[in-house]
């Protein structure tokens, strides 16, 4: 229980750091971000949205109030999910843009990351168990090499060879043009079809990291005495691998889950840009290129929250899997 409380304190602090970093960044940067934002709105647009300048000032600085006053207003606006208006999506507010794009990204990265984790740890486990076997000499180097590829390069290769040349997958956008997003069969099947190649790219980019991690830990685990003991008891080889060595070896890689997931969220930005996929990553790039700072701020916060939340879920998994954590 104490362990649990410690983690909760940690996450609360992490959320606070993300919030405050987001508040300080535009104020620390050279230049005048708020002028850059207001330059994208016409006077009539500003007049049509009373209070928009105050919101921007709280988010980006440049107002007359003190920094403490700004900080309080900033937290207050955030508590009401009010990030102001996204200048590049006028008149949509930032929260609406995020709500529209985030589901695509969550689906993509969520599915892909779980597949990468499952494949990576399984391959790593088998490779360590049979050193020099087929998996260890062929599959491991292949996945490792793919993992060293920059995500956007793998994505471009996928688009060119699997999409353009072999025509196995659609190569652009999140769904067929002409469809309206909604919960109907035509849209969902089209969206699923369009997500396949991006998911394949994320899996190939991130499975390698898990393989290496799992294999290294597993090699150390195999020389433990309890594994020799399990063999001596006459247990089947596969059972010793999965239930004795594998189960213990998976714990250290699990602890690196949050950092890996943060990396995958970053990779997502590149992949969405290559595929013109309508998710939060592409939106972030477009917003950063177009000086839409309220939107970049909102998206950075959301990305940080997603990683923190996933890390928390992993802690819960750790709690279930590791009796030592439960006992403490």
């Amino acid at each position: 229980m104490r362990w649990f409380l410690r983690r909760l304190v940690f996450y609360a602090f992490a959320v606070w750091v993300a919030l405050t970093l987001n508040f300080l960044l535009p104020r620390l940067m050279p230049g005048d971000p708020i002028a850059g934002v207001l330059a994208h709105l016409s006077p009539s647009q500003i007049q049509a949205n009373p209070g928009i300048i105050q919101t921007y000032e709280a988010l980006l600085g440049g107002g007359k109030g003190t920094i403490w006053h700004d900080y309080v207003v900033y937290l207050h606006r955030l508590a009401h999910l009010n990030f102001g208006i996204s200048t590049s999506n006028y008149p949509a507010p930032v929260s609406e843009v995020i709500g529209r794009t985030l589901p695509y990204s969550i689906f993509l990265v969520g599915v892909a990351f779980l597949i990468a984790f499952a494949i990576g740890t399984t391959v790593g486990m088998i490779a360590a168990w049979r050193r020099g076997g087929a998996v260890d000499t062929v599959v491991v180097p292949t996945l490792m090499a793919l993992g060293a590829f920059p995500a956007f390069f793998t994505a471009l290769l996928g688009v060119f060879f699997l999409g353009l040349k072999l025509k196995w997958f659609p190569i652009q956008h999140g769904y067929d043009s002409g469809l309206v997003p909604g919960f109907d069969w035509a849209f969902l099947s089209s969206a699923f079809r369009h997500s396949q190649l991006p998911i394949l790219v994320i899996v190939s980019a991130f499975a390698g990291g898990w393989v290496l991690n799992m294999r290294t830990v597993m090699i150390n685990t195999i020389s433990e005495e309890y594994v020799a003991m399990a063999h001596a008891k006459g247990l089947r080889d596969r059972r010793v691998m999965t239930r004795y060595a594998g189960r213990n070896a998976i714990l250290p890689p699990l602890n690196g889950f949050a950092a890996q997931f943060a990396g995958a969220v970053g990779g997502l930005v590149f992949i969405e840009v290559v595929f013109s996929y309508p998710g939060a990553g592409l939106t972030l790039q477009q917003a950063a290129l177009g000086n839409d700072y309220p939107l970049t701020q909102g998206l950075l916060l959301i990305f940080a929250f997603c990683v923190i939340a996933s890390s928390f879920i992993m802690d819960l998994a750790n709690f279930v899997l590791d009796p030592r954590v439960r006992a403490s």
Partner: peptide, 24 residues
């Protein structure tokens, strides 16, 4: 250790994209 772990859960690429967006 605490600070390191906090910085590990803030996704680097989005952070860098946002910073680069501010820097002209």
């Amino acid at each position: 250790n605490f600070l390191t772990n906090v910085f590990l859960v803030i996704p680097t690429i989005p952070l860098l994209v946002v910073i680069s967006g501010y820097l002209k």
